[in-house]
Amino acid sequence: MNTAKGINTARALNTAKALNTAKALNTAKAMNGSVLRWLAAYTCSVTADSVYFITLSWPPRAPSARPPQA
């Protein structure tokens, strides 16, 4: 009788662990999507900032050496 009770208790514990693991995986998947979305936005932002600062440091175009034509 005690053996059957112990087996049932072990099964219940394994079921509870499996459910907790499934909940944790679902949470991790949702968090992973949010993290990937943030990472994509951050990458775009840093890339745009780099382009902006490179264009600020670009020297202005030198005036033409030719005299204006009449």
Rank of each mutant, 00 (worst) to 15 (best):
M1N: 08
N2K: 05
A4I: 12
G6R: 01
G6K: 02
G6P: 00
N8I: 09
N8V: 05
T9R: 02
A10L: 03
R11I: 07
R11F: 10
L13W: 04
L13Q: 11
L13A: 15
L13T: 08
L13V: 12
A16Y: 00
A16Q: 02
K17M: 12
K17H: 08
A18F: 02
N20V: 09
T21I: 08
A24N: 08
T27W: 02
A28I: 01
A28C: 10
K29F: 07
A30K: 00
A30Y: 02
M31G: 02
M31T: 08
G33E: 13
V35Q: 02
L36C: 11
W38T: 15
L39E: 12
L39D: 15
A40N: 14
A40G: 15
A41K: 13
Y42G: 10
T43Y: 07
C44F: 12
C44A: 15
T47L: 14
D49W: 08
V51S: 12
F53Y: 07
T55Y: 03
T55Q: 08
S57K: 04
W58V: 11
W58M: 15
W58S: 15
W58N: 11
P59Y: 03
P60L: 12
A62V: 13
P63M: 01
P63I: 01
A65I: 11
R66V: 11
P67G: 06
P67Q: 04
P68S: 07
P68M: 05
P68A: 09
P68T: 01
Q69M: 10
